[in-house]
Structure formats: C-alpha cells, structure tokens
Nucleic acid binder design. Structure first.
Lengths: 112, 112
DNA sequence: CTAACCTACAACCAAATGGTTGTAGATCAG
DNA sequence: CTGATCTACAACCATTTGGTTGTAGGTTAG
C-alpha cells in the first residue's frame, strides 16, 4: 500500500503542524477534554497573545488535526485525528520497511 | 507512560525533519537501499545543488533519523529509525487517548 | 605528483514562520 | 441599548528555512 493517497503537500502540513510544542500541547489538551475548548479558553493557558494561539489553531485545522465548530460567539475546538492517523501510518510504513530489512540481514547472517 | 523522555526540542526537530518532501524521500530511499548512499549518490537524484542535499542530510542526522559513516572519501548515509520510533510512539499515544475517549462516549450513550 | 572527486562550510538571498499590535464584526449579559 | 467578550484578520517584525554560489580540505585514480 502506498499509504493512502496523501499528497506531499498534505504530509508537509501534517508534520509541520506537529513540529511545534505549543501546537502539540493544544492537541494533547483538546484530546484530554470532554467538551472541547474555545479558542480563548485555549489561549488562557499559553504565555502568548490570543492572535498567536489563533494562528496555531488555524495551522492544526488546515492539517486536519482539529476541527472548529461555532457555538454562539465561541468557536469550539475538538480533536479530529484523521491527520494523526495519516502521519502515523507513514511512520509505520517506514518502520515496517526497516524491520523487514533488519530481518533479511539477520537471515543472511544466520543461514550463511 | 509519558512517551520516553523526549524533550520538546527533540520532537520539534523530529517532526520538522519529517515535514519536507525531499527529506522524506531521502529517508525512503535510504531505507530501501542495502548498502546505504553516499551524499553525492543521494544528491544525484534531486534537482537541487549538492550543498542543499547536504543540508537536508544534516537535518535528518540531527533528528536521529539517519547516521553518516565515513568510508574513504565518501560519507555513507544509513537509516537510523530511532527518531522514527519516537515520533510514531507519540502519535500512537495521541491516537490511544482518542480511541479511549470515543469508547467512553459510546459507553455513556449505550448504557445511558 | 596531479587531477578529479567527495565533502564541509561560509556567505548570501527570498520566502515562510512565529510572534506582536491594532481594528472590526458578532454575540452575549445586564 | 450598551458594554464586555469572542473571534477574525491585516500589517508589521525578527528569526528560521531552503535554496544558491564559492572556497577549501581530504581522498582516490592515473
């Protein structure tokens, strides 16, 4: 399998979204919440401006790692691990190839 | 478990390293090779300068995704999926939390 | 020895990133 | 209605990133 049909650009965005500690923390926080977080609810936890957190949320949304849902004047952020799965499957594939390779080398060494 | 002891900076570097198509291609190429690639052997495959590929290799090395081994005048690049595993384990953990949450919600709905 | 090759690294440049402040439109509370 | 709150978005700035060219040092081939 060629790992879904995820385009290069999609993967770029996915891994790039995951490459920032604040964004990973937002993911963890949202995953660990029951009802989700409003954007300002999230922003309250970080030592940066609201707008900065807003941008991080936008990056995560583009990468399909979260979704936003309007509720009144708030925008509720929830986990949407579709992107998560895609990224993990690529790493799985890489690791699979690696393990296969290690196994082959061991075979060659043992069976001589 | 708190996913090894990988520091934020380590994860930043890991995911950032994975967020570029050329670098992912280098990983795939090296994983798929038997003896590894020299840096210029790699560079031959990309429409960019040798120095650019050299920089990509350096990024991957810092992220523990590959290793370089000097052999004569060449530098042999090999896969070193330690970083790979770390990244995958974090995504696994995220997905685990998600699945747990989905299960809990289903329980609440069914046992109502 | 000399020439070719492989690598390292510095200096430079354009574009993207992560942050800021400021402005403005909705929505809710009193 | 009015004021406070939540969000969106633009403009700006410093730093990082991904690329370039150029120079220099080690290693191999002839």
């Amino acid at each position: 399998m060629v790992v879904d049909q995820l385009s290069d650009a999609e993967l770029d965005g996915l891994f790039q979204a995951l490459s920032d500690g604040t964004r990973r923390d937002i993911i963890a926080r949202v995953l660990g919440s029951d009802g989700g977080y409003s954007v300002s609810g999230l922003a309250a936890h970080y030592a940066m401006s609201f707008a900065a957190v807003q941008k991080h949320v936008a990056v995560l949304e583009r990468a399909l790692l979260i979704t936003k849902e309007k509720r009144g004047r708030e925008q509720i952020v929830r986990a949407h691990p579709e992107g998560l799965g895609k990224a993990r499957r690529l790493l799985d594939e890489y690791e699979g190839i690696w393990r296969q390779r290690v196994r082959r080398i061991e075979e060659i060494l043992t069976e001589g």
